[in-house]
Design a protein around this nucleic acid. Structure first.
Lengths: 247, 247
DNA sequence: AGCACTAGAATCGTAGGACAATTTCGGTAT
DNA sequence: ATACCGAAATTGTCCTACGATTCTAGTGCT
């Protein structure tokens, strides 16, 4: 018997455009009954966080229909959405499987993330007068620090996402928010957490630096700090690549 | 149990992800019979280029099923994909409509595009030894110049896309390619072409500058040129915003 | 044994019909 | 004109079905 549990995370409230992975609403209000399709999407993503799903694992339609007690239509729609998000690969006539990132894929992604997060930090700093956003950001940063860098957990990953989410929200750029959702940093971490552990050591200071720069409204310092932060992860992966294939 | 295979270092056999809007194959060979779903996607996007579809226009499922002679399943999947691409907005219980960009949306997007294209140009310049890619880029640039800046056309838009596509391809960064497909510059142009006309005057020189810097392997100059190019569009829109709401 | 080949099983992509829930529209009453 | 109400349109989902493609495993040949 499959144990798909109910919702735990909040979800967006007022947005018109649907957004299964949206940020949690500030208000603890009603979690309305999620549509079947969105339930699948949420649960797959959550499954990645929780380690329930592994890269390369196949997602068979028939299996999902049974697991969630829904029909193929919504399942297929969910898989399409997940594919568009870059969470799964959809192979023609062969179904969906959790996306496998090569080392190059991961580095490529992080380079893009570096640019995007840097931009987020810069824009966020330019909006340092947004007290509410700033508070959320500080709260998110403080939240992350509670976790032990050595032992990864789903909550840890969520906290990290909340931080980036707060940062991006503060940047107040819808397009940026959109593409940030697409890069899915957590996918990278899921697959390469062992390699990223060394990079995680400076984490605390990194987050502090970013938050401080943003709070101070120092946009270029914020951008630099954010880029440096991601840069550490990139370096870790590149060091490994160099060691692996010294070609 | 996990039927997992390799992880990090390993190169997981290269999967061919489907890509309805992908670049057209360089070879004029077989146009494989597109799946119904992809046909819809392609045609909607093409419709935007050609002005057949307008922002805000509703896409009714029943209408599409008839128009393409397919059933609702594929239609709904196509709409989901288009929504994930940011081409349409999907309103719960109300269907899909071609996305309407506010002026702020457009500026936000262009700011992101500026970062991404700048990055593309920089990476492309770092791969200036890629003769094939370079040739494609030069060809694409030459192609654009054939069009009259004053009279927009679908072919013109396609040529422009081909240029960015070539640039991004040369950057050799899968993640970058992925997010570039997401920002959909053409959507912006479709809605704001009148405002962008002034920015288009320097176009020829802009493209030449970018191509030259890339060819010369001068990455920072390439990035600067690319950012400047997009920057002109941003300025045009911001000037208009300032004029509209001087609040 | 080892390998090519083929039949069957599994799975996908799509069709088509049905129905409740929700939104939109048109007409009627105030 | 405005408010209200019921009919029509539209979406979200379920179900069944079937050809096409891929995977699996067993058969037969060298």
């Amino acid at each position: 018997m499959k144990t798909q549990q109910n919702d735990a995370g909040g979800d967006a409230g007022k947005v018109q455009v649907q957004d299964p992975l949206g940020e949690q609403a500030p208000e603890p209000v009603a979690s309305k009954p999620l549509s079947p399709r969105d339930r699948v999407i949420q649960d797959v993503v959550r499954g990645l966080y929780e380690g329930r799903l592994e890269p390369g694992q196949r997602l068979v339609e028939a299996q999902l229909t049974e697991q969630y007690g829904i029909s193929r239509g919504p399942v297929r729609e969910a898989l399409n959405r997940l594919a568009a998000m870059g969470v799964v690969d959809l192979l023609p006539q062969r179904g969906a499987l959790i996306r496998i990132l090569t080392l190059k894929d991961a580095i490529d992604s992080l380079q893009v993330v570096q640019g995007l997060v840097g931009m987020s930090a810069r824009l966020a700093a330019e909006h340092s007068s947004d007290d509410e956003g700033l508070e959320r950001l500080q709260h998110a940063a403080a939240d992350i620090m509670r976790f032990d860098p050595a032992s990864p957990s789903a909550d840890h990953a969520k906290a990290r996402d909340a931080f980036y989410s707060a940062l991006t929200a503060m940047a107040d750029n819808a397009a940026l928010r959109r593409v940030m959702m697409q890069v899915h940093i957590h996918l990278i971490r899921v697959q390469f957490r062992s390699l990223l552990r060394t990079a995680d050591r400076r984490r605390h200071r990194d987050y502090t630096d970013i938050v401080e720069a943003v709070a101070a409204g120092n946009s270029s310092r914020a951008e630099r700090a954010a880029r440096a932060h991601i840069g550490r992860s990139i370096s870790a992966l590149e060091a490994f690549r160099a060691a692996e294939k010294p070609a």
